[in-house]
């Protein structure tokens, strides 16, 4: 059974003559341990799709099932709670809190869920070590390189052991070599684990590292291609 099922998702903004269709009848399923790359040009609807799966936007039509739970029906509070428990998000601009250290940025996730335990602190340090950042745990984002910041952002997304990771343009601010390193790291982390990952990118070379690729053009699925 698929962990994630996206069925006939349509998203429109505005109404009447000013109505814009950002996504139209998008469907796909994703199994555990898989990395799906959503590929398309700017403005094609990739980020809208990511936002809908994250519960940050509600679809105009269609449904999102995660482990058979219809998350598209969640209100904003329930959606926030669902994200805290089950979803990890990596933003394009990483959005690390600038005045927190790398370790503290990871601890934000359990902090929003209640209180930070000793296990949380140990897990944060372990994740940073796993991403080669053990020596950078006490450094603020301004003291890290672009690649290091992106790795901290990925580690933060993994902090709550999510079932679904949503990664937005993880390599757009990195050169090709560093970008490939980040994607390889992401893939090696997904494989063999009880989670799935959607990675939005406009870079076909990065998409090659994914298990599946979903091409979106003008809000529609252009093709489902094996990686």
């Amino acid at each position: 059974m698929s962990l994630l099922a996206v069925r006939n998702i349509t998203k429109t903004y505005g109404s009447g003559r000013t109505q814009v269709t950002a996504l139209e009848d998008v469907s796909f399923e994703l199994d555990r341990g898989k990395l799906l790359a959503v590929l398309g040009p700017s403005g094609s609807g990739k980020t809208t799709l990511l936002s809908i799966v994250a519960g940050l936007l509600r679809p105009t039509a269609g449904e999102i099932l995660i482990d058979d739970e219809p998350v598209h029906l969640h209100g904003s509070r329930a959606a926030a709670a669902f994200r805290r428990e089950h979803v990890g998000i990596v933003f394009q601009d990483h959005h690390l809190v600038p005045y927190l250290s790398a370790a503290e940025n990871l601890l934000l996730v359990p902090h929003f869920s209640g209180r930070i335990t000793r296990e949380d602190r140990e897990r944060a340090l372990a994740l940073l070590a796993e991403f080669g950042l053990a020596e950078r745990a006490s450094h603020t984002p301004a003291e890290l390189s672009g690649g290091e910041r992106q790795r901290v952002a990925i580690a933060r997304a993994l902090m709550n052991s999510p079932e679904i990771m949503l990664v937005d343009e993880p390599t757009s601010n990195l050169d090709t070599e560093r970008g490939k390193h980040v994607v390889d790291l992401l893939r090696s982390h997904i494989h063999g684990r009880d989670m799935t990952c959607i990675m939005v990118t406009h870079d076909a070379r990065m998409a090659e590292a994914a298990d599946d690729v979903l091409r979106i053009v003008d809000g529609r699925v252009a093709a489902d291609l094996p990686a």
Binding site: A80, A81, R83, F91, H95, V97, P98, L108, F112, S113
Partner: peptide, 16 residues
């Protein structure tokens, strides 16, 4: 605004 949007996306409530 951007930072608040991000932490809300990570699960922080308006009340928090």
């Amino acid at each position: 605004t951007g930072q608040i949007a991000a932490i809300k996306a990570l699960g922080a409530s308006n009340a928090y």
